[in-house]
Design a protein around this nucleic acid. Structure first.
Lengths: 197, 197
DNA sequence: GTCTATAGCCCGATAGAC
DNA sequence: GTCTATCGGGCTATAGAC
């Protein structure tokens, strides 16, 4: 029996470690419920050290959303996603939400920020709008192709259905947080039942 | 021409005024983004005055959720709601969400609290779970009767469909906040298109 | 270039005035 | 019974040490 190769854990630079940690706290507790103190304690530095890397909390919040947007674009354009048939693309999307669920029942970026939206700095608001718009447009295209090729089934416009499906997924993660993972699975099951032919 | 009877605006007692105001701020900005100072300034008193009526912010938050739960039960059992046929009950539910939208694009209680759920006091968490559970059970019953009588159409279990529809409505209000009222109307239109025969 | 000491503010909450 | 003066603490952010 061979042992799996040891993949060295590359210690991310401080700037990235802060961003990862802040993103986790944002998705687990909300933007107004984590502080530089929380980050500092976890990283073993003083709160003010964070300010060197991200001068204001607004900057840090913006960096989180901007990175998520870059990731979305990268993911969407990946050959192993972009070249898939529509049903597999839809399943790949579901897998992303399932991953969120697996990470301490994190909600998605949109679900984390929507309620507190009015308290967010304007640049973050704009970036989140772009994020949601691009994701919706991508899914609308997937749904349109899927219906045209007879592998996905729905009534109404692809844009309306995409908006509905995405908000259902965001909401399913929120319900999972309030109750447990069961309703998430139930709701995703319902989506599959309705969409897949 | 006769003038409409003057309905005197009964000035609510201070306790109720605080609760109304706090509820509004909660649904517009989130639980962690409003303070006793905000309430006090609006009411023309000092922050500490609020503590007389609601000793802690946890008490105030709990009072908001508890009142919403009382309202839900009252609304659901109203003859003009309980005695309606399923389609009209569904439309009555949509009207409630439309009212939220009309009030400064408020989100619903669930949508306001889900993201920050882990930062809420335990009694509030429990009460919100009850709120969501009772609302879901009510809608599941409505959907079951509607399908049995041939006026509502859906696949899957009434419970799963109810969970999906409610989370879609909560999410539709969140999207309306992030973008504008259009996506809310689009998503509600999609729901109607799919459910109504 | 990286981090710490500390300022200054706003928070929720208590004690006690009226 | 109702409200105000004030406290201790946590917050973000700045100034400056190393």
């Amino acid at each position: 029996m061979t042992t799996a190769p040891v993949i060295p854990t590359i210690p991310a630079d401080t700037r990235t470690r802060i961003l990862d940690l802040a993103e986790g706290l944002l998705l687990e507790r909300g933007f107004n419920a984590f502080s530089y103190q929380h980050l500092a304690k976890e990283l073993g530095v003083k709160p003010a050290a964070i300010h060197y890397h991200y001068p204001s909390k607004d900057d840090l919040g913006m960096a989180i959303v901007a990175r998520q947007l870059r990731r979305l674009r990268k993911w969407r354009d990946l050959p192993r996603v972009a070249d898939l048939p529509p049903v597999a693309q839809f399943e790949a999307l579901l897998a992303v939400y399932d991953t969120h669920l697996g990470h301490e029942r994190r909600v998605c970026l949109f679900g984390a920020l929507a309620a507190d939206f009015r308290t967010l700095p304007a640049p973050m608001q704009a970036e989140l709008r772009t994020f949601n718009r691009e994701l919706t447009e991508w899914l609308a295209q997937v749904l349109a192709v899927g219906r045209a090729t007879g592998t996905l089934r729905f009534v109404g416009s692809p844009a309306a259905k995409a908006a509905q499906v995405l908000i259902t997924l965001a909401g399913a993660l929120q319900v999972a947080r309030v109750h447990d993972e069961t309703p998430f699975q139930v709701i995703v099951g319902q989506l599959r039942l309705e969409l897949l032919t």
